[in-house]
Amino acid sequence: MPGEFTLIDRYFARPTPSAVLGPGDDCALVQPTPGKQLAVTTDMLVAGTHFFPDTDPERLGWKALAVNLSDLAAMGATPRWVTLAGALPTVDEAWLAKFATGFFACAERFGVDVIGGDTTRGPLNLCITAMGEVAPGQALTRSGAQTGDLIWVSGRPGLAALGLAHLQGRVALPEPWPRLCVTQLEKPQPRVALGQALVGLASAAIDVSDGLLADLGHIAERSGCAAAVRLVQLPHLPKGAEYNADLRRIALECQLAGGDDYELCFTAPGSATQAIGQLAARLDLPLWCIGEMHAGEAGNVTVFDPDGKPVSFEQTGYDHFAHG
């Protein structure tokens, strides 16, 4: 059975042209671009919590990196370097080869170098640290929203949670939604180009990882204001002959509180609406205006039905500890 360093060399040692010194020493050495700040984020993916143990390893490799790049996208940062640490229950070289294929495909797609990491034996657990660059004072944060700003979200939040519900047998999705939703769950697309384009345009931003309402609530709390979301302005989800009341209810819950979408939710003044529309066309990415920020209790998010009446939801997002 190959040892730890053999596995690293075989599957994860790749050229790192952007690093001064890549894997092989006690530390990697990187040289940030002069005049830039470093943005650093770390995420863990744990088998049984963030993904099914039998998830396709190539897709898992992609997602493990993509969710970290999504955090950089939310700050408007340019991805540069990543490290990967993982606990593996056994040495399965076929699994490792496929995982590495997906991981490095994502790295190549978004122009990042894998500059180090670690492996150990244990329950399947993946931990990635990603580093990016942003001009001083230009990073998008959660605290910049102003009363009167409009609320936007990219893509179609809810698809990933619907994909999970489909795999768990909690919902039967009409065609062609199953493949679309499961792909969104297993191979999310970090909105790096959108985040970079929103610098100087958006007032605040966050990536939707724990649920749209919960993550929007973080913007509202950090910005010291409240948020209103209009159901009639949300993106459309599955429709068709099998789109019954039960599916409609589950789809709405997934859209507002499901999480795992890795779309960007952001705020911007009304004067930016035309520029945002042009940006959507340029990126070929739907951008939806779903509500507005207003004066009120900091962090409060209210959802309004088509008649303008507030609607309450038992859950607004995912909490690892609340879910035991």
Rank of each mutant, 00 (worst) to 15 (best):
residue 66 A to M: 06
residue 96 L to P: 02
residue 115 I to M: 00
residue 59 R to L: 09
residue 83 T to K: 09
residue 103 F to S: 08
residue 74 A to W: 05
residue 92 D to M: 01
residue 85 A to W: 07
residue 82 V to E: 09
residue 118 D to G: 15
residue 120 T to D: 09
residue 94 A to W: 10
residue 90 T to A: 14
residue 84 L to R: 05
residue 117 G to S: 10
residue 70 S to P: 09
residue 118 D to N: 15
residue 108 E to Y: 03
residue 101 T to V: 11
residue 98 K to H: 13
residue 68 N to A: 08
residue 83 T to F: 07
residue 81 W to K: 03
residue 79 P to F: 12
residue 73 A to C: 07
residue 114 V to E: 05
residue 53 P to V: 07
residue 118 D to T: 11
residue 81 W to N: 01
residue 58 E to C: 10
residue 115 I to F: 01
residue 63 K to F: 01
residue 72 L to F: 09
residue 66 A to S: 11
residue 113 D to K: 07
residue 71 D to I: 02
residue 78 T to D: 13
residue 61 G to Q: 06
residue 66 A to I: 07
residue 121 R to S: 12
residue 92 D to V: 00
residue 62 W to E: 03
residue 112 V to S: 10
residue 53 P to L: 06
residue 110 F to R: 01
residue 74 A to Q: 03
residue 115 I to C: 02
residue 121 R to N: 09
residue 97 A to Q: 14
residue 76 G to H: 01
residue 114 V to K: 01
residue 69 L to S: 09
residue 102 G to I: 13
residue 76 G to W: 04
residue 76 G to D: 02
residue 56 D to A: 11
residue 91 V to R: 07
residue 114 V to G: 00
residue 75 M to S: 14
residue 88 L to W: 12
residue 121 R to A: 14
residue 114 V to L: 14
residue 98 K to I: 04
residue 107 A to E: 00
residue 81 W to C: 04
residue 79 P to I: 13
residue 114 V to S: 11
residue 90 T to H: 14
residue 105 A to V: 00
residue 86 G to V: 15
residue 81 W to H: 12
residue 57 P to M: 11
residue 94 A to F: 13
residue 118 D to W: 11
residue 115 I to D: 00
residue 117 G to I: 11
residue 108 E to M: 02
residue 105 A to E: 02
residue 70 S to W: 05
residue 59 R to D: 03
residue 73 A to Q: 05
residue 64 A to V: 13
residue 84 L to S: 07
residue 102 G to F: 05
residue 115 I to W: 00
residue 52 F to C: 03
residue 60 L to M: 09
residue 89 P to F: 06
residue 67 V to N: 06
residue 86 G to S: 15
residue 109 R to F: 04
residue 105 A to C: 00
residue 109 R to W: 01
residue 67 V to H: 08
residue 90 T to S: 14
residue 87 A to G: 05
